[in-house]
Each structure stands twice: as C-alpha cells, then as structure tokens.
C-alpha cells in the first residue's frame, strides 16, 4: 500500500507545475528561431504551402507556418497583427480595411495567381457543351428556387428531365465569387442545391449523376478530367473573345475566360516585412510563384506581371488596388496593373 501511494503522490506532484504554467505568464516569442506566419484562404493554401516547402530547403533556419482560416478569418487575425502574411482569394473588403487601419496595420497587396471556377457536368450529359452567363443566372438566381428544376427550362432543346445542382460551400470564397459573377451580388443564390465545403464530394456527386451540373475550383476539374465534363462559358461580350470559351491555363491567364476567373492575393504586413526572414520569404514567393503555381494546378500571372508585383513589394506600395468597394468580377491582371500605373 505505501509504495502505491508514494507513486501516486509523485505522479500528481510532477503534474502540478503544468497547472501553474497554464495560468501563468505567457511567452513573448517561441524562442530564438525566426518564424514567418501565414493564414487565410484555403484556395491560396496549396500555393503558400508549396512556396514555404521550397523556401525552407534554402533557409533551414527559418520556420514558415501556414494556417487555413478562410479569407475573412485570415484578415481578422492579420488586422490584429497576429500573422505576418494573409492569404486571400478576394481583395480586402471595406470593413477589413477599416479594421486594419484602426489597429495600425499597414500592408502591401500582391496578386500572385489566377484561380478559375469551372462549370462541369457528367460525361453522359451529351446535350450540353456550353452555357451562357444569362442561362447560369436563370439557373442560380434566388428566384429560381422551386421554379427552375428541369433542363428544358434553361434552354429549350435540352431534355425535359430534372436538373441536379451542385456547388461549393456557402462559406467559401468560390461561392462568393461565383454568385457575384453570375447573379450580381455575392452570396445571393438559390438555396436548394447540394453544397459542400469539400470539393471532392462535389466531384463524386457530379460524376455519378447524369443530370448534374455544378461549379467548382478549376484545379478540382483538372485532377478529375476523366470523370467530369467541362462546360464552356459564354459571357455575351465579344471584347475578350467571341462565343463560349472553355477554361484552361491560357484562357484564364489572358482574361478570355470571363467572368469566372479571379486573381488571388497575399497581403504582407509592412511592419513584418521589416524583418529579414519575412522580406526574404516574400521575395522568394514572387520569384518562384510562376513555377510553383503551375505545379499545384493554378494559373500563373503573365511573367511581366510578376516583375511589376515584385516592384510593388520593393516600393512597399500600400493600400488596395480595389479600394474595397469595387466589383472585381472580370478584372484581368492587365487591368490591375494599368490601374496601378495610373496612380
């Protein structure tokens, strides 16, 4: 008996300091190692992860961590000064600009790639090869809920059969951008479609349902070309190319595939950029983006654009190109840079 109670005592005694630590003082840093912290959009995560992986091969002394909190969650932390760099699949919004300004966080906005949204159907749906933005609006507008439910209601000539809609989860940047591009207002959409935050669920759903139509990030189509059929999109304007255009690296990069292609960004805190490791990381990011972006199935900017973005970082140009409120649907990188030159 005594031996067991002694052991019990020793065990409990050993544990007590940990409790004290829980309520005790907090650390100012995690030690001497240099850390670069990134957080934000899940669509930008694969790019940042690839860059971080390569960066640490060259700079083993620097640790880079990447989190996924969504674009909005990422900005929340960024504007509190908790992260050095924020991944964003849309430009910073007006309330976020205000929050950052209030906390005194200055930032540099750097476009790093394009992300396309693909409209896909089941390979057995041989009746459809292209769709217009107006038709997409008929299908996805909030008014369509409960009234538009058959293929031939969208275009006469399509079969008189049910249409099953699939889409990215309502908390994702993909959903925000799709609804803004198609219905004109972010998050404004019918509610009676199958949605999932996990895009692989959508891939499975669409590939096993002949009557399905859905939208998902281009990279998910890219990895599942044999089970999904891509639908070309006609934006009804001829200045970027007439007729329906299918997304691929080229049409997304040149801005021919509109309006379902968008730039994605990283936002770098100016204060953090004064630290050597952060500056080196961002410079490495911009130098390697072209190669690494392609590797993870995203579309890079034109290479001249990367030089201009690097220049933007070198000069520490603050503020957002989008001034928060402007509609960013259909903006190409050329237009972005033209706006910058005009400043």
């Amino acid at each position: 008996m005594p031996s067991s109670s002694i052991r019990c005592l020793a065990l409990l005694g050993a544990l007590m300091p940990a409790v004290a630590a829980c309520g005790g003082s907090s650390p100012s840093s995690t030690g001497a190692t240099a850390i670069v912290t990134l957080d934000g959009s899940s669509s930008v995560f694969p790019i940042s992860e690839a860059v971080a992986e390569e960066f640490q091969r060259i700079h083993p002394g620097v640790r880079v961590t990447v989190g996924i909190s969504g674009t909005g969650g990422g900005f929340q932390k960024f504007c509190r000064g908790e992260t050095d760099i924020s991944d964003a699949s849309r430009p910073i919004s007006a309330p976020e600009i205000a929050a950052c300004a209030q906390a005194g966080v200055d930032y540099v906005e750097l476009p790093i790639a394009y992300d396309g949204i693909a409209i896909v159907v089941n390979p057995k749906a041989e009746w459809i090869s292209h769709i217009s933005v107006a038709e997409l609006r008929t299908l996805w507008a909030p008014e369509a809920q409960g009234t538009v439910g058959r293929w031939n209601q969208v275009r006469p000539g399509w079969p008189d059969r049910e249409i099953h809609l699939f889409g990215a989860g309502v908390d994702s940047g993909t959903f925000d951008y799709f609804t803004e591009a198609v219905t004109g207002k972010a998050k404004s959409s019918r509610g009676d479609f199958t949605s999932s935050e996990d895009d692989n669920v959508l891939v499975q759903g669409i590939s096993s349902d002949e009557l399905a139509l859905g939208f998902l990030p281009f990279s998910y189509y890219d990895e599942n070309r044999d089970t999904l059929k891509l639908v070309a999109v006609d934006d009804g304007k001829d200045d970027n190319g007439a007729g329906a255009i299918a997304p691929d690296a080229e049409t997304i990069r040149t801005g021919a595939y509109q309006p379902l292609a968008r730039p994605v960004f990283i936002y770098v805190s100016k204060k953090a950029a004064e630290r050597n490791e952060v500056r080196q990381f961002v410079e490495f990011y911009l130098a390697e983006a072209d190669t690494l972006v392609r590797e993870v199935s995203y579309v890079g900017l034109p290479s001249a654009a990367y030089d201009l973005v690097a220049e933007r970082f070198a000069k520490r140009v603050g503020g957002s190109l989008f001034a928060g409120a402007e509609n960013t649907v259909g903006v190409t990188i050329e237009q972005l840079l033209a706006r910058e030159r005009a400043r």
Binding site: T30, T65, G67
Partner: peptide, 17 residues
C-alpha cells in the same frame, strides 16, 4: 483555436506552433 495546417517541424516546447 487556429491550430495551423502546415507546420513543417515538430513542436519544441509548450509555446511552439
């Protein structure tokens, strides 16, 4: 809580990410 997704190292203390 904000636990990270990409942390290319094992924690080296209780204050580590």
């Amino acid at each position: 809580l904000g636990a990270l997704t990409y942390v290319p190292f094992a924690p080296d203390g209780i204050w580590s990410p």
